[in-house]
Amino acid sequence: MENLNLFIRSIFVDNMIFAYFLGMCSFLAVSKNVKTALGLGVAVTFMLVITLPINYLLETYVLKAGALAWLGEEYADVDLSFLSLIMFIAVIASMTQLVEMVVEKYSPSLYASLGIFLPLIAVNCAILGGSLFMQQRDFGSVWTAVCAGGGWGIGWLLAIVAIAAIRERVQSYSNVPAPLRGVGITFIITALMGIAFMSFLGIKL
């Protein structure tokens, strides 16, 4: 139940784009039409669901102060937390490569639609951000990490698809001042959506 709440909260209240503005670079670059936006959104969700639990296990059993206690008494004092950043990014980068290779081998059609996004993902702030928030908030179990990862991913997907849909309309139907065309107006739309999403803050879960 707790995890379900967290899942829903991660989608709407903790939304990676509208509440934290993470993953903006690829968000702005790829939100020009709905189809590619959907592809990137699915890829991000997928990577968050995979990397968050792995990083959680890494954090709890290897990196945290005293986490190596299971190796024996003498390791109880070891604190490797200064390595956590580099380990997280290494996990994310290698998972991206791994997934890319697996997908390429077994599902060429999926690779054709998703493949071009995978290299973009290693440097997507939303994925590393997810792991860092996980570390900061002290999650209770692997399942919490999976739920949060899924929620953040779906929230990100929702945001990029919504913005892509709006951008498509804006491009063809509205008369935006020339200097604001393109990114400028997208920034403003995203900000307004962010303010709208703040109304989810009051939801009791």
């Binding site: 020339a178 200097p179 604001l180 393109g182 990114v183 920034f187 403003i188």
Partner: peptide, 26 residues
């Protein structure tokens, strides 16, 4: 609140692209 940062950046883009016409999107 964080969304206002986006709007401020959008304003900077607006000002800069009004002066620098070749940066504007078609």
């Amino acid at each position: 609140l964080p969304p206002m940062a986006l709007i401020v950046v959008a304003c900077i883009i607006w000002v800069q692209r009004s002066y620098n016409k070749d940066l504007q999107d078609k």
